[in-house]
């Protein structure tokens, strides 16, 4: 059976993305290291994403608590609300939702920025100027996204749990220390470590897909828009695939 054109295009894209990732691993460890640009990207990707990630984290914790309460009350286990919310946020919802927001904000921004640099010949100009544009533009953005997403997830989780604390206190009264003691007592090493590790993979995927789409952008402004759009779509799908794989692996390792 001959594969359809769409399937062949998908395989082609996947192959190109893998080759792009291979190029990243071969070039990233070699000097010259673009420390200044890396620091600038960490600031842009990490610090500037914090307000959005913090706000959504807070709302996520608050809403999740308010939505879960009626079900737990009907079973008479509403005292377990902090534990349920805490485990859900730390293990799954915090990393995945933050990564999806990150993909929307940072993936699209990297795709559009590099795409626009490609179509306005800035990447060619960089090459002519004796700077390796792959190292300067791609390596710095991918490394910054990989390092900054875990930091954002930790902050988002913390704010989310605070939102959950407020959510719990809307209908009942729980002290701050009791609420957090309940959460931390229920969390184990196997809850935190896999969740933390997968955030690095999510960050890498978002940085890599955004850079790949932007770096190979073509067809003028239309192509830039397409790069930004496909950066978000592809990295969002990859986030779920990575999540699925990590859950399976941690399950096999007995960490669940």
């Amino acid at each position: 059976m001959i594969p359809s054109a769409k399937f062949r295009r998908f395989l082609g894209e996947a192959g190109e993305l893998s080759a792009f990732a291979g190029r990243f691993f071969s070039q990233a460890p070699r000097p010259r290291f673009e420390w200044e640009e890396l620091a600038r990207q960490c600031y842009t990707i990490g610090y500037r994403s914090f307000p959005l990630v913090g706000l959504t984290g807070f709302i996520m914790g608050l809403v999740l608590t308010m939505q879960l309460r009626p079900s737990l009350v009907s079973y008479g286990v509403d005292s377990q609300l902090p534990v349920m919310v805490g485990v859900a946020i730390v293990r799954e919802i915090g990393p995945v939702i933050t990564a999806l927001i990150f993909a929307g904000k940072i993936g699209s921004s990297i795709g559009a920025e590099l795409g626009s640099m490609r179509v306005t010949e800035q990447i060619d100009a960089m090459e002519v100027s004796g700077t390796n544009p792959f190292k300067y533009l791609v390596v710095t953005r991918v490394v910054a996204a990989t390092l900054m997403l875990p930091v954002l997830v930790i902050l988002s989780d913390a704010i989310s749990l605070y939102g959950a604390y407020i959510g719990v206190n809307i209908r009942s009264v729980t002290s701050f220390s009791l609420f957090f003691r309940q959460i931390f007592d229920s969390l184990s090493f196997g809850d935190v470590l896999p969740a933390f590790i997968k955030t690095f993979l999510f960050g890498f995927a978002v940085g890599m897909v955004g850079s790949h789409q932007g770096y190979h952008s073509s067809k003028g402004t239309e192509g830039v828009g397409r790069s930004a759009n496909s950066s978000v779509v592809i990295s969002s799908i990859l986030i779920f695939i990575i999540d699925l794989v990590v859950v399976q692996v941690t399950d096999l390792l007995g960490l669940n």
Binding site: T120, E121, Q122, D124, A125, M126, V128, S129
Partner: peptide, 19 residues
């Protein structure tokens, strides 16, 4: 190639200034 390019200037049609 890098050393040769230092002796050859290139003015791009779109200017290609880093914005």
């Amino acid at each position: 190639l890098d050393r040769l390019r230092a002796k050859v200037g290139f003015l791009f049609q779109s200017n290609a200034l880093y914005d």
